[in-house]
């Protein structure tokens, strides 16, 4: 298997001198293409910091993050931005949508940033919305959606530019269990299609579904186990439409 992200001796220190606090301490890690990885830990354990560093949203105090074998700290800013917009997808716990824009506009945003041609944008955004089952909500204001719908819009936004890796930060954290299951189902379906999934969570049920669980405590990896992933529960009530290959 091809390694997609490698982390060497990664350290992150917040604050200076007396107030310095090490959020991560010499972490080493390799993530392979197509894996589903859960990063589990209590709040304050450093799991979010690790994800931010993996996603190149933050720069490490020490150590290296290699994307496809290339040292990210040696990349030009423009390339890092390009990498983020073309290769990564993000799903946040708090959704982070522009509440007064339409659902479609929110999903379009990454394509705009990636300078995708105007004519193909809408088509691709609609395809992504179809995958999450919200194509009929395209013209609605993002603010008028329920929490589960919002998170589905976020997933649509994360996949709209066909990313290689999806970073999900507590994707089910703000949702009830039934809605959470739907979201989980969506994410793992993407994983089955070859998208690398990196989920930060403290939800053990969600972690069980992943092929690999990395436990973090106090800025250190305390365990890193591959497991046979439990197939995600299918939500009994409403079936999510089957994902079609996007053209």
């Amino acid at each position: 298997m091809k390694e997609i992200i490698e982390v060497r001796n990664l350290t992150k220190v917040y604050g200076k001198k007396a107030a310095a606090f090490s959020a991560l301490k010499s972490v080493n890690l390799k993530i392979y293409e197509g894996e589903s990885v859960a990063i589990v830990g209590k709040s304050g354990s450093g799991k979010s910091t690790l994800m931010h560093l993996l996603a190149l949203l933050d720069t490490p105090t020490q150590g290296q993050v290699l994307i496809d074998g290339e040292n990210a700290s040696k990349m030009k800013k423009r390339k890092v931005n390009k990498l983020r917009s073309n290769r990564f997808g993000f799903v946040f716990q708090q959704f982070f949508m522009n509440p007064n824009d339409t659902v479609l506009e929110n999903v379009l945003l990454p394509l705009k940033i990636a300078k995708v041609k105007r004519s193909t944008r809408k088509k691709r955004a609609m395809t992504a919305l179809k995958i999450v089952g919200l194509e009929d909500k395209a013209k609605n204001k993002a603010n008028n959606l329920s929490g589960g719908q919002k998170q589905r819009v976020c997933i649509a936004r994360a996949i709209v530019n066909s990313p290689k890796i999806i970073f999900a930060d507590e994707p089910t954290g703000n949702l009830d269990s039934a809605t959470g299951d739907k979201i989980t189902d969506l994410l793992f379906r993407l994983n089955q299609k070859g998208v690398t999934l990196i989920i930060v969570t403290h939800d053990e049920d969600l972690a069980k579904l992943c092929g690999r669980v990395i436990r973090i405590s106090d800025g250190k990896i305390i365990s890193d186990k591959r497991q046979r992933a439990v197939a995600p529960r299918r939500p009994a009530a409403k079936k999510v439409p089957v994902a079609r290959k996007r053209g």
């Binding site: 949203l57 800013k77 983020r84 917009s85 073309n86 993000f90 945003l109 990454p110 940033i113």
Partner: peptide
Amino acid sequence: TREIGLMKSLGMGRGK
């Protein structure tokens, strides 16, 4: 602020 954060995380450069 949050919108700016989102756009940056989605790969929008400082110049833009």
